[in-house]
Structure formats: structure tokens, C-alpha cells
């Protein structure tokens, strides 16, 4: 493949936390990270725990504020630096361009699994019945038994919740995907399904940036590794 389109550019990205109530401690987690991610690529963050892998994903998603540097995202055919973007712009980027799947499902009381999965698609403008059909198909593919679809996932097992979470994260095709160990509590068969889904997304032109601790999974999905190591604490 020649000259794939760059989707994400990190330039001199740093992140530190200031803890006002713990003697004004200052924790530096990321220091001057540069990274570019192209369409069709799956870059896996590699490094021991404490290296700031999850923090990096959260900073890119604008869940954490950027201390210094730039997070440029290709959005609507142009570049947008999330460090400078307004909240409304960030929300729009999240709605249409940037997806994020975490390790844990944030359960909403009383909302059934099927609705949780379909919600991002409905918000993106798809008709409700069509979105629900789509959500059902995805849950089916991830082997979530149909008898669970009408139940709120609060009481589901860890693996079931994680699959609901993946379905919710992947239902809207987005050009840029951030994955924070979405397969941690899945068995081999379901991991294979996720790997397939990611490959389909990549073939459709999405760029993926993820954390996968499982060696086998990493082998299957990664096109490139991005090594990270913990910063020396001063």
C-alpha cells in the first residue's frame, strides 16, 4: 500500500497530573510523544504497566486534558488540534471520527443491552429500528445470547459486559479507533471475533491505536508496535 492517508498526528505530547490535595504533587506520565497513524494501520502500544499507555489513549480521546503538545485528528477532511478545540468540536469529533473502547462498560441503570449498543448509531442519525437490527447482528456475532439483549447489563458477567462494550464502541464505523484492552476478559473464540471486526474496520480504511496485553491477540491485529516506557520520577 502506498502513501496511506495520515489520520492522527501526535506532536510533543506531554501529560502530567497536578494533585492539589496531595501536597500539590505533580505526576509526569507522558513526555514529548510523537506518533503518526495512517489509515488502515493498527498500532499497538507496548510497554510495562505504568508506561502511560492508557493515559495516552485517554489524552487522545480528550478524556484527559493535554498538558503540552498537539493531538491532530483528521476530521471532516481537515486537521483539528484537540488541544485547541472547543468542547463542542471535541464532541463532534467523538460523534463522527474518533471512537474509544475501554476495558469496562459504563452501565446505565435500566437501559437494556441492545439499546446501549444501538445508541451511538441512533445518535449518528440512523433510524431506530435499523439501528436495533444492526446492534442485534453485532451482539449475535460477539456471541451474546439473545435472551440477554432486553436486560440491562448491570448483572452480566465481565466477559459479557465487555462484549456489549465492544459492540457499542464499534457499531458506528469511525475512521479512528482507540482500544484500551477491550479483550482482557474474553475467551479465545471471542477474541478471534474481535480480531476479525478490527480487520474489517482496517480494510474499510479505519486507523486503530490499541493496547493488547495478550501476545496472541497482538500478533493477530498489530501492523506495528509503538514502544513506551515509564518516565523516571524526579
Amino acid at each position: 500500500m502506498t502513501a496511506a492517508l495520515p489520520m492522527l498526528e501526535l506532536r510533543g505530547l506531554s501529560k502530567s497530573f497536578e494533585l492539589h490535595h496531595q501536597h500539590d504533587a505533580r505526576l509526569k506520565v507522558l513526555d514529548s510523544i510523537d506518533l503518526s497513524l495512517h489509515a488502515g494501520e493498527c498500532v499497538v502500544l507496548a510497554g510495562p504497566s505504568g508506561a502511560g499507555k492508557s493515559t495516552l489513549l485517554r489524552v487522545i480521546y480528550a478524556n484527559y486534558r493535554i498538558s503540552r503538545g498537539a493531538v491532530c485528528v483528521r476530521h471532516d477532511g481537515g486537521w483539528l488540534d484537540l488541544a485547541e478545540a472547543t468542547p463542542h468540536q471535541v464532541l463532534d469529533v467523538r460523534r463522527r471520527t474518533l471512537g474509544y473502547v475501554s476495558q469496562f462498560l459504563r452501565v446505565i441503570p435500566r437501559v437494556p443491552a441492545l439499546d446501549i449498543v444501538a445508541e451511538p448509531l441512533i445518535e449518528a442519525g440512523t433510524a431506530t429500528t435499523e439501528a436495533l437490527q444492526h446492534a442485534g447482528a453485532l451482539l449475535h456475532r460477539l456471541n451474546v445470547p439473545e435472551r440477554l439483549w432486553r436486560l440491562p447489563p448491570g448483572t452480566f458477567s465481565g466477559g459479557e459486559q465487555q462484549r456489549v462494550n465492544i459492540a457499542r464502541g464499534l457499531i458506528v464505523p469511525r475512521p479512528l479507533l482507540l482500544l484500551d484492552e477491550p479483550t482482557a476478559s474474553l475467551d479465545a473464540a471471542n477474541r478471534a471475533v474481535v480480531a476479525e471486526l478490527l480487520e474489517e474496520a482496517r480494510n474499510a480504511g479505519s486507523a486503530v491505536l490499541g493496547i493488547f496485553h495478550d501476545e496472541d491477540m497482538r500478533q493477530r491485529v498489530a501492523t506495528r508496535l509503538f514502544p513506551m516506557r515509564p518516565l523516571e520520577t524526579s
Binding site: 497530573f17 497536578e18 494533585l19 492539589h20 490535595h21 485517554r58 480528550a62 478524556n63 484527559y64 486534558r65 468542547p87 471535541v90 464532541l91
Partner: peptide, 21 residues
């Protein structure tokens, strides 16, 4: 002021940090 998840997950102001913790 900002995105809700940003404020709750990465509070900046001392008062917000106190509130979240």
C-alpha cells in the same frame, strides 16, 4: 468548565478535585 468526562476523570481545579475525590 468542559466535557463532563474530562472534568470528572481529570479535574484541574483544587475544588473540582476535592468534589470528585
Amino acid at each position: 468548565t468542559g466535557l463532563t468526562d474530562q472534568i470528572l476523570d481529570d479535574p484541574q481545579h483544587p475544588y473540582t478535585q476535592l468534589l470528585v475525590s
